[in-house]
Design a protein around this nucleic acid. Sequence first.
DNA 1: CGACTGACTCGAT
DNA 2: TATCGAGCCAGTC
Length: 104
Amino acid sequence: MRGPDTAAFYAEVYDVVRQIPAGHVLSYGRIAALVGWPAHSRLVGRAMHDAPLELNLPCHRVVSSTGRTVPGWHQQAILLMSEGVRIKDNGCVDMRRHAWEPES
DNA sequence: CGACTGACTCGAT
DNA sequence: TATCGAGCCAGTC
């Protein structure tokens, strides 16, 4: 198999995102690895971009591996802060503190 | 079909 | 962590 079934991949990604607790975040790469496709962080990003609004996913809790927020979506930082996430002066999430470690 | 495009990541510095 | 360059990958044109 050269690549994931995108529909199934999207569904699994959404499942993971749904489980991120308030006050925590997850990176695209971590999510990709969790669903079994470690090299597809970009596809996770695409899944988020295409995420149906009616799913009510906490997509604001998904950031880049370095804690950078979504380009252009300035509300994201506001939402995160309202959940107690600490945003550094440079606008990046303090990953050290808020990266979610799903328990096995 | 090849070039371009990102809600990306990793290694080196 | 911050920055930079190179690698990566499915989708779009």
